[in-house]
Structures are given as C-alpha cells and as structure tokens.
Amino acid sequence: MSSENKIYFYPLWLRIWHGINALGIILLIITGISMNSGFEKSFISFKLIITVHNYAGVIVTLNYLVYLFGNLFTSNKKFYIVKPKNFLKRPMKQAYYYAWGMFHGMQAPYPLSEKRKFNPLQKYTYIAVMYLVVPMVIVSGIGLMFPELIFNKIYNISGVLITAVTHSAMGFFISIFLLIHLYIASIGKSPVDNFRSIINGWHHITKK
C-alpha cells in the first residue's frame, strides 16, 4: 500500500470535534429516548439520565461552535460549497450508485480527492444536518433549559409543547442520520477502513 493512495483528509481539530460530537450525540440519543420512553425505572436513575442529557447537550452545543468557527476560518469550508449546475442530478447519481450501480460493477461517480471530500449526496446531507437540524435542536434545547424564553402560547398551543416536540423531532432526525451515517461509513475499502480514517486522519482513495 503506497502512501500516494492516502490523503490526510481530517485535520486534528476536526477529528477532536468529530469525536466529541459523536460521543455527545450518542449519549443524547440514548438519554433522549429514555426520557421519551416513559420508563422511569432503568439501570441508571431517571434523574441521572436528565442530568447527563443536560451536560451532553451543553458540551455538544459548545462543540458545535468549534465546528462553525473551524469551517469559517479554515479551508475545510470549501468542501461544503454546492455547485448549482446539476443541483439535483448529482446527488441522484450518487444515490443510484448506492442503490444499484455498486452492485453492478459501476465505479463511484464522484471519487474522493484532495478537492472533493464528500460526494454530492453526502455533502447535501451534511449541510442539512449541520446547518439546519443541529441548530434547531440546539435552539430548542436552549429554550427548554430556559423556558422563560419560550412564547407562552402560539395559536393556543403551549409554547413549551411546540419547543419540546421540535426538540425531539430534530433529535430523532439526527438519530436516523447517525444510523445511516454509520452504515454508509462501512462502505469503504474494508468495512472498518473509514472508521479508522476518522481516528487517524488518513483516508484511502481509489486512483484510476
């Protein structure tokens, strides 16, 4: 295996951010589901679950700032730029590759390189999750921590209820994202190769 086939994709700050984010979000999902499930008796106390959720929420929120500033001040931001040309065709092509092409000897339509860290479908998903869903979960989470900030009523529906529903619905989307994210990460040179990359920073690429 020559080093030419490897690119240093993930700088240290990004790996640290990703690691904290991953652990934090996993904790948030587990504790979030516990709170919604209504099981008051589990192997850890219900009160502890709430406290863990609060702490993890604050850590993930602060960590989100690392991501935001990291993308603002480093070259990492260029990977998130969306090309208007073939705006829908490009992710569709990638989806077609995942659903059909990869089983029929098709080459990945958007192989990763120094210039392209994410395929179009991946890019769109990350933008939606990181710049829409996560901010919403953070804002609604802050609302629930400081309920005096929430409107009392919006069209006769309790503001706390709307905020809580938004918070858990967005949390749910993040869980689904995580599930698919982890699965697609297993589609690499070997099933564990991409997981190794996000830890050591080096990504294997296939050169034509």
Partner: peptide, 18 residues
Amino acid sequence: GMLSNENYVIGSHQIPAL
C-alpha cells in the same frame, strides 16, 4: 445547578401520530 435541573418534558411522543 442549572445543568442538574431535573425537569423534563416529553416531546413528540406526547403526540401519538408523531
């Protein structure tokens, strides 16, 4: 103290359709 606040509110699971 704020982080140890033990209050919680159920979100979308309050609404059966969701």
